[in-house]
């Protein structure tokens, strides 16, 4: 088994190779504005470091967000197209689950929160690093303060809002290494991982125009 994992749902552009037992190579670069430019060279570099070619990959794992859409789609589109070209399955894993796994917490509950911009966070609660308790959601930190009160929290969204998440700590961003390890574990346990579907959680910003604006002066 050789899994190629990638995630672009947070400011990190992160890529890893996993052989079913261990992570072989991984790479993470934090640059929220350049997901599109950084991802393919990172894949190329990781493969070169492992001395492998892309056609050795038996499955692709991709973070499905939630995350800022433009960056999120870079990873999803890349994974989908690799799947098409290589004829291998593409597995979707919730990005928050990857962060929870990387947090390595046996006893929760705890919160994973990433930065959703516009003063909001993407978040979910976990019983432990492998068990999510709530569906991923997007909210203003103040609006969920009661629900997360007293809980430890990880992720950039938690670190950004200490008033709501006073017990926030690392990791800040998801890593493809964690995503790959989580996927490998689930696949080994005979679980079916879902096909990748983006978790947008918000409707597109679009307004049906009001009635036509009159140009004749009154």
């Amino acid at each position: 088994m050789l899994l190629l994992a990638l995630d672009t749902a947070t400011p990190a552009v992160t890529v890893a190779l996993h052989d079913g037992t261990d992570v072989i190579v991984s790479s993470s670069q934090v640059d929220a504005r350049r997901h599109g430019e950084l991802l393919l060279p990172a894949v190329d570099r990781v493969l070169a470091e492992a001395g492998l070619k892309l056609d050795a990959v038996t499955g692709v794992v991709v973070g499905t967000g939630p995350g800022p859409y433009t960056g999120l789609r870079v990873g999803l589109m890349t994974a989908d197209t690799f799947g098409l070209a290589l004829g291998v399955p593409v597995h979707g894993v919730c990005t928050l689950d990857g962060l929870a796994y990387a947090a390595d917490i046996d006893k929760g509950p705890f919160v994973v929160a990433t930065d959703a911009r516009r003063k909001e966070v993407y978040w979910a609660t976990y019983a432990d690093s492998r068990t999510r308790l709530t569906d991923p959601a997007v909210d203003r930190p103040a609006d969920i303060a009661e629900r997360v009160a007293g809980l430890p929290a990880v992720g950039a969204g938690a670190l950004l809002y200490p008033d709501t998440f006073p017990k926030a700590h690392e990791p800040e961003h998801v890593s493809a290494a964690a995503l790959a390890a989580l996927a490998a574990e689930r696949l080994a346990a005979g679980e079916e991982l879902p096909a990748p579907r983006p978790l947008y959680l918000r409707r597109p910003d679009a307004q049906v125009p009001k009635n036509y604006k009159v140009v004749t002066p009154k």
């Binding site: 599109g36 890349t78 994974a79 197209t81 690799f82 098409l84 070209a85 290589l86």
Partner: peptide, 14 residues
């Protein structure tokens, strides 16, 4: 960006 991501992945994989 969606098209560029797809094209890069496709060209690279092939």
């Amino acid at each position: 960006l969606v098209g560029v991501s797809a094209a890069k992945a496709y060209a690279y994989a092939l």
